[in-house]
Computed example of a mutant assay.
Amino acid sequence: MIFIVVKWTPKPEHVEDFPNLVADFTKATRAEAGNLFFEWSRSLENPAEYVLVEGFRDGDAGGEHVNSEHFKAFTAAAPSFLASTPEIISQAIDADGWGEMGEITV
């Protein structure tokens, strides 16, 4: 799996409406055959920052994602509502999705 975490900082005037600005991109990405998950969260420590956790089946699926029309349209539009360049961690890992945490059993 390709596991990706991206930190996003919208411009102050777009912090509250950021989920709406990424909604179409999110929906289109989740519909991709190789997408395993695409989940947005808001930072508890910095409410002006959003965190995106992504999973793609493999490198081919990740490549299809970055070459998709919705990705190209989103990356072209994003600078108009972002305060800074997003920060990213992207790694191939030996997993195919989420597993249960071993340290806590419920």
Rank of each mutant, 00 (worst) to 15 (best):
A48Q: 15
A28E: 13
D94L: 07
R42L: 03
S84T: 04
G63F: 02
P19N: 11
W98V: 11
K72H: 07
A73D: 10
A76W: 00
L52N: 02
T9R: 15
G99C: 03
D58L: 10
L52S: 02
G59C: 13
I93V: 15
A48N: 08
F37D: 05
A83D: 03
Q91I: 12
T75Q: 05
L21R: 15
V15I: 07
E100T: 08
Q91V: 11
T75N: 08
N20T: 15
K27D: 14
W40P: 00
T29V: 07
L21P: 05
I4P: 00
Q91L: 15
K27L: 13
E32Y: 08
T26E: 15
A92Q: 15
F18T: 10
F38I: 02
Q91G: 09
E100D: 04
A83P: 02
H65E: 02
W40I: 01
F3I: 01
A23P: 05
L21M: 14
I104Y: 07
S43M: 04
A33C: 06
D17I: 08
E69D: 15
R30K: 15
S80P: 01
S68N: 11
A78V: 00
N35I: 10
S80T: 01
R57S: 02
E16K: 13
N46A: 06
V5C: 01
